[in-house]
Nucleic acid binder design. Structure first.
Length: 632
DNA sequence: AAAACTCCTCTTTTT
DNA sequence: GAGGAGTTTT
C-alpha cells in the first residue's frame, strides 16, 4: 500500500501515516500509553492468546470450557462497540448467562491489565481513551493529520469510528470509501451503521456514488449483481460497466472433490497454454481452508505452480508461537499468557501443581505470575525440590531480558540455545524455527514482535508466477483476470453454521459476491455432488445462490457426463485433443536462445505450442510452427 | 512429571 | 482423518 501510494503521489510519503487502524494505534500507544495506565512495553495478544486466556478464566469460573469461542466472540463485539465490563454488567438482570459472561469479561480485562497486555480491540479502545482524557495529546495528533482517508470503511467498528471522529476534530477533513455489500466481518463487530450514520456524524458530507465498474466484464457484473440483489438489508445500487459482455460465467456440477480439483487445474492449464494468461493471472477461491488439500494435489499433478494465501499462518504454528512467547516474556515479564505457555516447554519439571500454586498466590496479591514467582522464591514460599527449577527459569528469562541483542534473530538464537528448545524436536518444526529466526534478522526484538502480531496476509508480495489459492475472506481489494470459485454447495457456501441465522446467511452471500467481483474476464463456479466432510462422504445440494444467477449470462453444466466436457476451456475454446509433439522434459535448441528444456506442450504438429525454459533467459512460450525448434 | 491414550473439534478473521 | 488438548497411566 505504501509503495502504491508513493508511486501515485509526488510527495514524501514518510510524512504520511499509512497503515491499519491497529498499527497506527500501536504506534501512538507505544509513545503515549502511560497516560492511560499501561507501561510502554505492553504485549499485544492475538486471537490465540485471547482464547487461551479466556479458557483459563472459564476453567477458573467452572464454566464449560468449550464455550470459549462464543465467549471470545461476544467479548470481542462488546469491546469493538466500546461497552465496558461494568457497563455490560449494569445492563444485566444479574442471573442470566450474560451475568456470567460479564464477570468473565471483567476478569479478562483485569488479567490484561495485570499482564500489561493489550488485545487488538484494546489498541483502538485505549487510543480513544487516551484522546478522550488528554485534550493536549489529542490536539497534537489532530495537528499532525490535517486530512484522513479510510478505505474499506464498511469493515470499521464503533471504536474505530469514534477514533476517526476524535482525530478529525473540528476540521472534519475526512474521506471514507466503502461498500456495504462487501461487508464480511459483521460477526467480528464491524458495523455498516458507520456508513449509514456517516452523514449524520459529519454534516455536509459530499457523497459520491461509485457505480461504474471498470474491472469486470458485463456478464460477470450481471451475474454477481443478481446474487447480491437478493439480500434484504442493503443499500440498493445499480452498477454499470462500459466493458464488453465477455465470456459467459461458467458453472459446472461435478462428482467428487477430486473431480472438481482436476477440473480446475485442467482448465487453468488449458487456458495457460492456449491463451496469453500467465499463472499469476489465475486465482482459486474457496470457503474453508480444508478445501485446499485436494486442490493442491491436483495442481501438483499438473505441475502448476501455486501459492496458498491465508490458512494456518506460519506465526500460529505451535513451535513458532512458543519461541515468540519467550521473546515476549523477555520484553514484558508480566505477560502471563506467554509465561503459562512456555514455563514448562521444553519440559523443565514444572508441572500443573506447581503452576496452580503460583496462580493462587498471584491472584491473592493481584500480581503477575512472574513477579509472584520471584517473591515466592525470595520468601521461601516454594518446596525445596522445586526451588532450583523455578529459580533457574526466572534466571533464564531475566537473562534474556537484560541482554541487549543486536537483532531479534540473535535473541531467538540465544533463546533456542539456552533453553534447548530444539532438542528432540521433529525436523519440520526445527525448520520452522530456523525460518522464524532468519525472518528476524536486522530488526529489533520489539519491532519484530509488533510486526508478527500486526502484519497481515495482504502484506505478502503477490506471487510472481503462481496461481493464487485463497479463502474468500481474503479476497477483498484484489482482482484477477481468471477466477475460480469452488464448492458452491449447501453447507459449504453457504457454510452450514449460517443456516439458522438470516444475518449470517446474508454475510455468506456477500462473501460469494466479493469473490465473484474479483474476476476481470473469466469467472468459473463449481460444485460437487459428494463431499468428504470430516471422514464421512456426504451428498451435497447445489448452493441456493446458484438459483439467483441469470442463466442467459452463464454456461450451465448441471450434469457433467464425460470427463472431457468438464474442462471449462472446452466451452471457451474448441477442444483439441493433444498428442504432444514435444516431450515435456526433453531438450530442444532454439536459434536465438540456445538449448532449453521443454516444460509444457500442447497441440500437435504445426499447431503445437511449446513452453521452454532457457537457462539464463527464462520461460518462453513458442508456436512450434514459427519457433524452429530442434529436438536434441 | 513424563508417556500413552482418549477425546474432541473441525468456518472465515483485519488486526 | 488429523492434530491438539486433556486425562489417565506408569
Amino acid at each position: 500500500m505504501k509503495e502504491n501510494i508513493s508511486r501515485c503521489l509526488d510527495c514524501d510519503h514518510k510524512q504520511n501515516w499509512i497503515g491499519t487502524f491497529h498499527s497506527q494505534c500501536n504506534k501512538i500507544l507505544r509513545k503515549e500509553i502511560k497516560a492511560v495506565g499501561f507501561k510502554p512495553d505492553f504485549a499485544i495478544y492475538d486471537d490465540d492468546d485471547q482464547s487461551s486466556l479466556i479458557r483459563h478464566i472459564l476453567k477458573e469460573f467452572n464454566i464449560y470450557e468449550a464455550l470459549y469461542k462464543g465467549v471470545a466472540s461476544r467479548i470481542g463485539i462488546l469491546k469493538a462497540s466500546m461497552i465496558s465490563p461494568e457497563d455490560f454488567l449494569s445492563q444485566g438482570d444479574g442471573f442470566s448467562f450474560d451475568e456470567k459472561l460479564g464477570r468473565v469479561y471483567l476478569r479478562y480485562q483485569d488479567e490484561l491489565q495485570r499482564s500489561n497486555s493489550l488485545d487488538y480491540d484494546d489498541l483502538v479502545r485505549l487510543t480513544v481513551k487516551l484522546f478522550d482524557e488528554n485534550p493536549k495529546v489529542l490536539h497534537k495528533y489532530q495537528e499532525m493529520f490535517p486530512a484522513i482517508l479510510v478505505d474499506e470503511f464498511q469493515d470499521t467498528n464503533r471504536a474505530q469510528f469514534r477514533l476517526l471522529q476524535l482525530l478529525a476534530g473540528k476540521q472534519k477533513n475526512v474521506c471514507v470509501a466503502g461498500d456495504d455489500d462487501q461487508s464480511i466481518f459483521k460477526s467480528k463487530g464491524s458495523d455498516t451503521g458507520n456508513i449509514l450514520n456517516f452523514e449524520k456524524e459529519f454534516p455536509g458530507t459530499k457523497v459520491i456514488k461509485l457505480d461504474r465498474n471498470y474491472r469486470s466484464t458485463g456478464n460477470i457484473l450481471k451475474v454477481s449483481s443478481s446474487v447480491i440483489a437478493k439480500n434484504i438489508q442493503r443499500k440498493p445500487k445499480c452498477l454499470q460497466t462500459d466493458n464488453l459482455c465477455g465470456e459467459k460465467v461458467f458453472y459446472c456440477n461435478l462428482g467428487s472433490e477430486e473431480d472438481e480439483a482436476k477440473y480446475v487445474s485442467r482448465a487453468i492449464k488449458d487456458l495457460y497454454l492456449k491463451s496469453n494468461y500467465e499463472y499469476n493471472n489465475f486465482a482459486v477461491f474457496y470457503r474453508i481452508n480444508l478445501q485446499t488439500k485436494t486442490l493442491e494435489d491436483a495442481l501438483r499433478e499438473e505441475s502448476i505452480p501455486y501459492q496458498v494465501i491465508g490458512g494456518t499462518s506460519f506465526y500460529h504454528r505451535k513451535e513458532v508461537k512458543d519461541i515468540i512467547s519467550y521473546v515476549r516474556l523477555a520484553l514484558n515479564n508480566n505477560d502471563n499468557v506467554s509465561l503459562r505457555r512456555i514455563i514448562n516447554s521444553p519440559a523443565r519439571g514444572i508441572g500443573s501443581t506447581t503452576i496452580s500454586k503460583i496462580e493462587q498466590e498471584a491472584k491473592k496479591n493481584s500480581l503477575s505470575l512472574f513477579k509472584t514467582l520471584k517473591s515466592m522464591l525470595q520468601t521461601n514460599g516454594v518446596a525445596a525440590s522445586f526451588k532450583d527449577k523455578l529459580a533457574d527459569f526466572v534466571k533464564t528469562i531475566e537473562d534474556f531480558s537484560s541482554r541487549s541483542y543486536r537483532s531479534a534473530a540473535d535473541m531467538i538464537k540465544d533463546i533456542v540455545e539456552k533453553t534447548g528448545y530444539l532438542d528432540e524436536l521433529e525436523e519440520e518444526r526445527i525448520q520452522a524455527i530456523l525460518e522464524l529466526s532468519s525472518s528476524a534478522e536486522n530488526i529489533a526484538s520489539r519491532d519484530f514482535i509488533d510486526r508478527v502480531s500486526l502484519s497481515s496476509a495482504s502484506d505478502e508480495a503477490p506471487p510472481a508466477h503462481a496461481v493464487t489459492l485463497m479463502p474468500l475472506h481474503n479476497t477483498k481489494g484484489i482482482e484477477f483476470p481468471v477466477v475460480f470459485i469452488i464448492g458452491l454447495e449447501e453447507g459449504t457456501l453457504p457454510y452450514f453454521k449460517a443456516f439458522d441465522n438470516a444475518a449470517e446467511m446474508q454475510e455468506e452471500r456477500r462473501l460469494l459476491y466479493v469473490g465473484m467481483t474479483r474476476a476481470k474476464q473469466i469467472l468459473s463456479l463449481s460444485s460437487v455432488k459428494r463431499r468428504r466432510v470430516y471422514s464421512k462422504i456426504q451428498e451435497q445440494e447445489p448452493s441456493r445462490f446458484l438459483a439467483d444467477m441469470p442463466k442467459d449470462c452463464c454456461t450451465w453444466v448441471e450434469r457433467a457426463q464425460q470427463k472431457e466436457k468438464m474442462v471449462a476451456s472446452s466451452a471457451l475454446h474448441p477442444p483439441t485433443k493433444k498428442a504432444p509433439s514435444f516431450i515435456v522434459g526433453s531438450r530442444v535448441k532454439h536459434p536465438a536462445w540456445g538449448v532449453g528444456i521443454v516444460r509444457d506442450c500442447c497441440g500437435e504438429g504445426e499447431e503445437a505450442k511449446v513452453t521452454v525454459n532457457f537457462p539464463g533467459i527464462g520461460l518462453k512460450r513458442l508456436a512450434a510452427k514459427l519457433a524452429n525448434l530442434e529436438r536434441i
